[in-house]
Simulated scan of single mutants.
Amino acid sequence: MAGEQENVGPLGPLVGYHLRRAFGAFAADFANAMDGTGMRQVLVGILAVVSGSPGINQGAVGRVLGIKRANMVSLINELVDMKLIARVVDPADRRAFSLTITDSGRAMLTDCLAKIEAHEQQMLAGFSDEERAMLLDLLSRIERRDPAIA
């Protein structure tokens, strides 16, 4: 690690630099894990939220995941076109749509979660259970400080 810090100069002690590098490694491995599924991180996230909250509207999904409203329509359209999510007019507010996961979406989510679990096991193979829990705790503390997430 010390030699690497010398190579990146003053970036070595910066947490943000290492978070970006760790994210890049995780994202690349995630993409490999999802190869052939047609799924990306954002689509899996949307499927997971809709699965956990049947009838949720797309604005609420966007708020939960920190996705801009302008991007939600095309993402939801993509999942509807893949027949993974059903979008129906909300009976309580005819201007809004409620979302539910389809049987195909549930199967896709189950498959993706299994692949993600294997991906995370591989990426964190050198971590103890306590270190994994600590990492999740530390990252969630950073997330809670982000006003865009609140």
Score class of each variant (00 low, 15 high):
2 A>I: 12
3 G>F: 06
4 E>A: 12
6 E>C: 02
6 E>D: 12
7 N>Q: 13
8 V>K: 01
9 G>W: 10
10 P>G: 10
11 L>S: 13
12 G>Q: 00
12 G>E: 06
14 L>N: 13
16 G>W: 09
18 H>L: 08
18 H>E: 07
19 L>S: 10
20 R>F: 13
20 R>T: 14
20 R>E: 10
22 A>Y: 07
23 F>R: 13
23 F>Q: 13
23 F>G: 09
24 G>L: 00
24 G>T: 03
25 A>G: 04
26 F>T: 10
26 F>L: 15
27 A>P: 04
29 D>S: 15
30 F>E: 14
34 M>T: 08
35 D>F: 07
37 T>K: 05
39 M>F: 00
39 M>A: 11
40 R>Y: 11
40 R>G: 12
41 Q>A: 14
41 Q>M: 14
43 L>Y: 09
45 G>M: 05
47 L>H: 09
48 A>P: 03
48 A>L: 14
49 V>M: 03
50 V>F: 01
51 S>P: 00
51 S>R: 14
52 G>R: 15
53 S>F: 08
54 P>R: 06
54 P>D: 05
55 G>E: 00
56 I>H: 04
56 I>G: 05
57 N>M: 04
58 Q>C: 05
58 Q>K: 12
59 G>L: 07
60 A>D: 12
60 A>Q: 13
61 V>M: 01
65 L>T: 01
65 L>F: 01
69 R>M: 09
70 A>L: 08
71 N>E: 13
71 N>Y: 12
72 M>A: 06
73 V>M: 09
74 S>W: 10
75 L>F: 14
76 I>W: 01
78 E>C: 10
80 V>E: 05
80 V>G: 02
81 D>P: 01
81 D>W: 03
82 M>T: 02
82 M>Q: 15
83 K>C: 05
85 I>P: 11
87 R>C: 06
87 R>H: 02
88 V>Y: 07
91 P>S: 02
93 D>K: 01
94 R>D: 11
95 R>V: 11
97 F>S: 14
99 L>D: 00
99 L>Y: 02
99 L>K: 03
99 L>T: 04
103 D>K: 11
105 G>E: 04
106 R>I: 02
107 A>I: 11
108 M>Q: 11
109 L>Q: 03
110 T>Y: 09
112 C>R: 09
114 A>S: 15
117 E>T: 15
117 E>C: 10
119 H>G: 00
124 L>Q: 01
124 L>C: 06
125 A>G: 06
125 A>K: 12
125 A>V: 09
127 F>R: 01
129 D>P: 06
129 D>N: 10
129 D>Y: 00
130 E>C: 05
130 E>R: 15
131 E>A: 13
132 R>H: 02
136 L>R: 15
136 L>A: 13
137 D>P: 00
137 D>N: 13
138 L>Q: 08
140 S>E: 12
142 I>C: 06
142 I>Q: 03
144 R>I: 02
145 R>F: 01
149 I>Q: 10
